[in-house]
Structures are given as C-alpha cells and as structure tokens.
C-alpha cells in the first residue's frame, strides 16, 4: 500500500475526458514523477489530490483516509502541501511574514484569533520561521517584500513555506518551468537534499526530463488522461509507448 492510492479516477470537462480511469500508487518516502505531453491531465490530477477539483468517479486515499470532498485547507492539515506552477506566495508581505503564516497554521489549525497579542513576541513561531529561512538560505532576505524577489527565490520560499509544515506528501507542479538553467539546477539540488534529509514523499509533475531523471524513483506516464506505464526511470527512457505519446504516431 502506498501513502497515496488513486483508484479509477475520472474527470470530465464538458466534452473532454480530462482524466480517465487513472490508477496510481505513490510509495511512502519515494519520489514519484508524473510526466506526459501538454494537456495530458497532469495538473488536473494534482487538483484532485488537493481538493480543488472533485472527480466524477474513483477514489483518492491518503494514508488510509479519503481526500475527496474535503476542502484544500483540510487536506493541507492531513499532511499534503502543494507547490504551484507559478510560485504562489504572499507577494505583499515580507519574506519573514510569509514564513510565519504556515508555521502559525501548523501550530494553531485553520482559524485562531490572536487579535491583540504581538506577532513578533511569539517566540516559538519566530524561531521556527527563522530556522527555516536559514536552512533555505533566505535569512538575509527576511525583511524583503516577497514579490520583489527573483523567480528562483520565490520558488525557494514557497518550498520553504511548504516544508515548514512538515508535510508527509509534497506535491510539485512543474517547479522548474520557466527557470534559467542555474535556477533549475539549484532547485534539483534543493529537492535532492530534502529527499535525503526528511521523511517525505514527493510527487512531481515535470516536463524537463533532466529534472525527472535526477529525482524520480518511479515514473508514471500520462497521456490523454490515462496512465500508459508506471515503471523505474531506466525502463521509461526507451519505452516505445512513451515515445509514442510524446512524439505522436511516428513511433517504430
């Protein structure tokens, strides 16, 4: 049994069958990549995992509990964190404030009203946020407004925000899309380090094969909403079905 078990998931948008009978099992503490051509349904599948979309059929179990019908914030509290294709951070707030919010959420749950207590007086929160910033090499930027950081740093901050909650499953949707080579390599190193140092399961969607083969323990290939193959990276590379999916009908 994997930590994430997806059975028979289907999702229709009007006339388009975006997901069709998707079966997937993500093993605990592994890194599972989902690849496939544009429009294959990868992001749709991720949206199902985090409660943004409810599928028409099938079940999604995380650690033995169904995620279907739960709101995104409830699913986050179950231990699933998500990194978006374009970094979603609190652009108007400082880096430190960005970091404190998930730490508060982890400690206090979905709502708690500290309306008059000073924010910087909360030692646990400040310390945890600061440690996390240091670990991720963002400590000098703590006072900066988040929206004024570089793309790479925003991504780093978003990952730091997710990790500060000690999630059991980290979902990444094309974390290196639109990044320069150097930033991409930094992100790969960062994710490798996270994989080694933490008890964490990672599910990653990615187009960049360099990223996929550097990180993934297992790969699922999705095409037109259906998984074609699921296997080890070495077996995926030359797989005829994969080449067919990516290169069209011209496979030999």
């Amino acid at each position: 049994m994997g930590i994430l078990e997806v059975k028979n998931v289907g999702k229709r948008f009007g006339g388009l069958q975006a997901l069709n009978n998707v079966e997937l099992s993500v093993k605990e503490n592994s890194c599972h990549a989902i690849i496939g051509p544009n429009g294959a349904g990868k992001s749709t599948l991720l949206n199902v995992f985090v409660g943004k979309l409810i599928p028409d059929t099938g079940s999604v179990m995380f650690d033995g509990q169904s995620v279907l019908g739960r709101t995104p914030y409830e699913i986050n509290q179950m231990g699933i964190s998500r990194v978006f294709q374009t970094p979603e951070i609190f652009g108007d707030l400082s880096v430190m404030e960005n970091m404190m919010i998930p730490v508060f959420a982890k400690r206090d749950g979905s709502f708690r009203m500290h309306a008059v207590q000073g924010m910087m007086g909360d030692k646990d929160i400040v310390e945890k946020a600061e440690t996390m910033l240091e670990e991720m090499g963002l400590a000098e930027k703590r006072g900066m407004q988040a929206s004024s950081m570089s793309r790479g740093d925003k991504r780093r901050l978003e990952i730091a925000m997710c990790l500060s909650q000690d999630p059991r499953l980290l979902l990444l949707d094309e974390p290196t899309a639109g990044m320069a080579r150097a930033d991409t390599n930094n992100t790969i190193d960062l994710l490798k380090q996270i994989k080694e140092e933490r008890d964490i399961t990672i599910a990653i969607i990615e187009h960049d094969m360099h990223v996929v083969f550097s990180l993934a323990d297992r790969i699922t290939v999705l095409a037109q909403g259906t998984p074609l193959v699921e296997d080890h990276p070495e077996n995926i590379k030359g797989h005829p079905k994969v080449r067919e999916a990516y290169l069209g009908e011209t496979a030999d």
């Binding site: 995104p72 108007d92 707030l93 959420a105 982890k106 709502f111």
Partner: peptide
C-alpha cells in the same frame, strides 16, 4: 493581510 495578498496560498497553507 494574507487574505488580501493571496487567498489561494492561504487555503493551501491549511488556513
């Protein structure tokens, strides 16, 4: 202020 800045991220942060 986080609500004003990015409700989406707030949701996916468990709040």
């Amino acid at each position: 202020r986080a609500v004003k800045s990015n409700q989406n991220r707030l949701n996916y942060t468990g709040l």
